[in-house]
Design a protein around this nucleic acid. Structure first.
Ligand SMILES: NC(=O)c1ccc[n+]([C@@H]2O[C@H](COP(=O)([O-])OP(=O)(O)OC[C@H]3O[C@@H](n4cnc5c(N)ncnc54)[C@H](O)[C@@H]3O)[C@@H](O)[C@H]2O)c1
Ligand SMILES: NC(=O)c1ccc[n+]([C@@H]2O[C@H](COP(=O)([O-])OP(=O)(O)OC[C@H]3O[C@@H](n4cnc5c(N)ncnc54)[C@H](O)[C@@H]3O)[C@@H](O)[C@H]2O)c1
Lengths: 216, 216
DNA sequence: TTCACGCTGTGAATTGTTTCACATAGTGTA
DNA sequence: TACACTATGTGAAACAATTCACAGCGTGAA
């Protein structure tokens, strides 16, 4: 019944992830303390925002020295990371799927892409970037057996809902969806849509808007 | 001095992009009208949200028939698209860069990736997915000459700032950044950060949170 | 030891976004 | 023609995120 560290917003979690990477970089540059305004500049936000976000952690800074980087990182990790590395499954080993396998392979102690799935017989039963690739028919059983909790969807739009349904039947609790559609999931499953098409349309729109402002 | 259709929020623009794709699908299924609640279900939002977003357009619906799909799509396009297809440049033809080239190649009338850039001599001076690949030293001049207004950054994190600086010197007004860092840009340049690492950390975090809620 | 400084932690204010709720109007029916 | 129905368009309310602003404190300087 105790209140967990749960009431952190979506966006705040994303910023904590970013702060952690920035702190790692600072650490590698030999720094051991940091002020909110330094992190803010690197993260592209305000010092007040940084301090608010740090309030979600059980870490205190000192006015004279700022925050201890080691402590901050530990605080962030205790919120973001689970005790054991989290298992991730990937559906769709096409252009994007392979890029994602390469990107996460080895780089992230907190995540491991344990299994990949594809419907193309020429792609399955191989190991790609250290990850075993299974036929998609085995998705539910492998996800269940391996206790995979997070799914990444990188199949064509038309197949996305079906693959999502199977991930959910396998018991995943979170999904990252790259297909340019919105998928339906049971309550209790978190979905993050990474809509690259919409993102590029936003960029183009605001670029145009800014040029209009300049031009006038 | 007239007020342009400018006061549309970031998020609303993203949703309009999504609506357009959903409408295209409906059209292909033979539909010609649509109600706000139908779009809302497909877009994963509320009917009120859909109607608010449509208020940004100069399109009216009728209570009895809903919205005319053709009119809605035309309204969205008149806000999102520029008159001519917009030229886009891509820096970094690695795993992700190639996936992006494949993704946008031919698929999007409103965007064309006109030029790609890489520092690796084995990758340049070829055509990949229909796009000419230049040495990165030529980035500024090609962007300027071709009048490329949008840049996509898919180089390693350590190179991102430098590439962004060059895009800006070339005169781009918008950037989509896949590198897991925040880059500095001159005022008047719009940056959209697509932070896949942060997105996956969010998914993992909320998946864990939901499982805790369930488990209790 | 005392003082001045500048940063933290946070309540309050502000800004931005989403939802509510209802007056209004178009359509089908009788 | 008149009525019942249902969905739109939107002002206002609710909610969420960000920024302001300042009390309080720890440090280093003198
Ligand atoms: N390539 C990109 O940069 C990019 C960017 C953003 C979004 N996306 C989206 O990501 C998805 C994948 O894109 P891509 O470029 O890798 O496409 P792709 O065609 O290269 O790869 C799709 C893969 O999914 C597999 N597949 C098809 N149906 C399947 C099923 N039912 N179960 C399992 N696997 C199946 C195919 O065999 C193929 O290997 C698409 O929805 C696309 O819109 C791609
Ligand atoms: N692969 C993914 O799925 C993925 C996902 C999210 C983010 N990212 C990010 O996208 C970026 C690229 O990822 P990737 O997996 O394609 O890496 P990659 O190593 O496969 O490709 C990087 C490419 O950039 C080129 N390059 C290096 N320095 C350059 C420079 N100064 N100018 C121009 N080109 C240069 C390299 O020659 C290479 O072709 C990285 O920042 C990565 O963190 C990748």
């Amino acid at each position: 019944m105790m209140k967990l560290k749960n009431d952190i917003s979506d966006k705040a979690v994303g910023r904590l992830s970013l702060y952690r990477r920035l702190l790692q970089e600072l650490l590698e540059n030999g720094r051991s303390q940091v002020f909110s305004h330094e992190l803010a500049i690197r993260a592209g936000c305000t010092p007040a925002q940084v301090r608010r976000d740090i309030m979600n952690l059980e870490v205190l800074g000192s006015p004279a020295k700022g925050y201890e980087i080691q402590k901050l990182m530990a605080g962030i990790s205790s919120v973001l990371d689970s005790d054991a590395p989290q298992k991730v499954g990937l559906a769709g080993v096409g252009n994007l799927g392979r890029a994602i396998l390469a990107y996460f392979s080895g780089r992230t102690p907190q995540f491991v892409i344990t299994a990949a799935f594809d419907s193309d017989p020429t792609k399955v039963n191989r190991v790609i970037h250290g990850c075993r690739c299974y036929p998609v028919d085995e998705l539910v059983s492998v996800v269940r057996e391996e206790n995979i909790q997070v799914g990444i969807v990188a199949v064509p739009a038309a197949e996305a809902q079906q693959v999502v349904d199977e991930f959910c039947r396998g018991g995943v609790l979170g999904l990252m969806n790259f297909a340019p559609v919105r998928v339906r999931v049971p309550v209790g499953v978190y979905v993050e849509n990474l809509d690259v098409m919409a993102a590029l349309e936003r960029v183009a729109f605001f670029a145009r808007r800014l040029s209009a402002v300049r031009g006038e």
